[in-house]
Design a protein around this nucleic acid. Structure first.
Length: 280
DNA sequence: AAATTTCGCAACCGCAGGTGA
DNA sequence: GTCACCTGCGGTTGCGAAATT
């Protein structure tokens, strides 16, 4: 079955937007709100396809867009989120207020990817490339991946066990070591989101969260969709807190790696640990 | 100063998911 | 359940600006 074109291309303008077109679009959306993109161009008096209007609005004209160069913190966050989410630019963008997925995608493709490559890190997997595996800096990334895979393997075993016996969290209670940071993360809602997505994707592929290309909604949306999980005992929050601020705090937990384990390379103040002083 | 190359960003394209008839 | 339509997402391209030769 052939797919109908998104719009009749005949007579429609392409290429850069003029200030007049921007003005028309902004005025229309101010009056009528966004949505109905297909009919919007006609109603707004624009010779553009609806898709083009939506893109222009979401990537450029939206009033809450924050323009200007990315800060070092933002870049750090993008790298961390990319390690977790892969090329899910919209999900990454949802954690950077005022930044668009397109902007982040461009940042990644033009700056961050190259920098990681220069450091001998595979930007796709965030693992040290084989040629630089001996590099101490790169080993951190290998540790990251190893920890993730170990936690994932254990978690899948434990989830099978937990499903039939003890409540969620009992497994980590047995392991009060606290060093198993990934396990705690995976028991948080964020982890559950990933597991859910993974489960959904398992019919298609068996890829890890970090390398998954499975499409998903924004991270916030995804976490909201996850049913409220009971809080793990050794996680430093009460169940009430978890329920009230589950997705955001869990994500923050994920991003703010503890400083007393091997993941500290991403949060150390000096050059962000793993990254060289001039990286950001 | 002119020509060429590289870089960065805006925009386009096609695919996939969601939704309602 | 099927189909058509709408919307959102990620990959890619095109072009102007900046840097280099």
């Amino acid at each position: 079955m052939g797919r109908a074109p998104c719009c009749d291309k005949k007579g429609l303008k392409k290429g850069p937007w003029t200030p007049e077109e921007d003005e028309k679009l902004v005025e229309y959306i101010k009056k009528h709100g966004q949505g109905s993109w297909r009919s919007l161009p006609k109603l707004a008096g624009l010779l553009r396809c609806g898709k083009s209007c939506r893109l222009r609005w979401t990537n450029y004209l939206r009033p809450d867009i924050r323009r200007g160069p990315f800060t070092a913190d933002e870049e750090k966050l993008v790298i961390q989120l990319h390690a977790i989410l892969g090329n899910r630019w919209a999900a990454i963008a949802s954690q950077l207020p005022g930044r668009t997925d397109n902007e982040i995608k461009n940042l990644w493709n033009t700056h961050l990817k190259k920098r990681l490559l220069q450091m001998g890190i595979d930007p796709r997997t965030h693992e040290a490339s084989s040629s630089s595996a001996a590099c101490p800096q790169s080993r951190h990334m290998a540790q990251w991946e190893t920890a993730r895979l170990e936690a994932e393997a254990r978690l899948s075993k434990e989830s099978m066990f937990l499903a039939s016996s003890s409540p969620p969290g009992a497994a980590t209670s047995r392991n009060p070591e606290g060093g198993d940071y990934f396990l705690r993360l995976w028991n948080s809602e964020v982890g559950e989101t990933f597991r859910k997505l993974r489960k959904e994707a398992s019919g298609r592929t068996d890829e890890s969260p970090s390398s998954s290309s499975t499409k998903c909604s924004t991270l916030s949306e995804a976490t909201v969709k996850v049913e409220k999980s009971s809080c793990v005992e050794d996680v430093s929050c009460s169940s009430n807190e978890m329920e009230e601020d589950s997705s955001e705090s869990a994500l923050q937990l994920l991003l703010d790696f503890p400083t007393n384990n091997d993941m500290s390379f991403l949060s150390q103040p000096d050059c962000f640990g793993f990254f060289p002083p001039n990286f950001f």
